[in-house]
Simulated assay, not measured.
Amino acid sequence: MLVTVASAKGAPGVTTTARVLASVWPQDVVLVDADPGGGDLSLLARRPDEGALDPELGLLSLAADARRGLADRPLEAHLQQSEGGLDVLCGVGTPDQMVGIAPVLPQLGAAFSRWPGRDVVVDVGRVTPSSPVLPIVQASDVVLVVTRARLEAFAHLRERVRWLAQLRDASLRSPAIGIVLVADSRDRRSAGDLAQLLAHEGLSATVLGQVADDPRAADVVGGRLQRPVARSLLVRSVRQLVDPVRALAAARAGRGVGTPV
């Protein structure tokens, strides 16, 4: 299963949501940093021994292999392990590097979607019609669009969902679209309001749930603070997204939730 996490505009919490989602995922998973603007994973995450991750080992090294063909080269060779035991694929350092590897991104998207024995969660940052990572988005089973509970954010989301609904991969399949709302944990209205807006517009997207706006826990996930977060509102709220995401992917594939996707 390939799950892409993106935003329509700005920085509503895509990287935090993707990292926490991968960390609580119930099956073997890889977290891929594919933000075209330059990845943060190699800068902020640490190995279990507290050492720094190697920024050259990840998307860049995998793209170099892809130019020679991936058939006989294990994807696992490009992974590193971050704290907590999460397997990660580090991203590029600059937008120019992403443009440079753009020709092989269709291969990488296909490889991510059928990684043997693994599910894959990819952080693609802000997704636009000109984004070089569109082949990964198109290959996804589910695109999770993260947004804030603001009027202007809903307006941008509406237009981006309309565009995403028209995407197709090489087999003419389109990814299922799920919406994740970042809001105060006491907010009981915004998710319903957003669902009504999407339904009124006739847009094929599902509001899957709400991620708690928890700045302290987000700072821990981003490497800016050190404190336990397993029981934080942030982690608990993201954990509740797992089953809806898997169900959405299963519905797209025409399978039951318990069937491997």
Rank of each mutant, 00 (worst) to 15 (best):
L2N: 01
A8Y: 00
K9D: 12
G10S: 06
T16M: 05
A22H: 04
A22L: 03
P26R: 04
D33H: 09
D33E: 15
D33T: 05
A34D: 15
G37Q: 12
G38S: 10
G39C: 06
D40C: 13
L41Q: 14
S42T: 13
L44Q: 14
P48S: 10
D49R: 07
P55H: 11
L60W: 09
A63R: 05
G69T: 10
G69S: 06
E76H: 10
E76S: 13
A77T: 13
H78S: 12
H78P: 06
Q81F: 02
G84E: 05
C90I: 02
D96H: 14
D96N: 10
V99A: 14
I101S: 03
P103R: 08
V104L: 01
P106M: 01
P106Q: 02
G109Q: 14
A110H: 14
F112P: 11
G117L: 14
D119I: 00
V124E: 13
G125I: 08
R126W: 08
V127S: 13
T128Q: 15
S130W: 12
L134C: 12
P135I: 02
A139C: 05
L144G: 01
R150M: 11
F154G: 15
H156S: 08
L157G: 02
R158G: 14
R158T: 15
R160T: 15
V161N: 09
D169P: 06
L172F: 08
A176P: 07
I177A: 07
L181K: 00
A183C: 03
A183L: 11
R186E: 06
R189H: 06
S190F: 07
L194D: 00
L194F: 02
Q196M: 12
S204G: 09
G209R: 00
A212P: 04
D213F: 10
A218F: 07
V221D: 02
V221S: 01
G222C: 04
R224C: 11
P228M: 01
V229Y: 00
R236E: 11
L241S: 10
R246S: 08
L248V: 04
A251W: 03
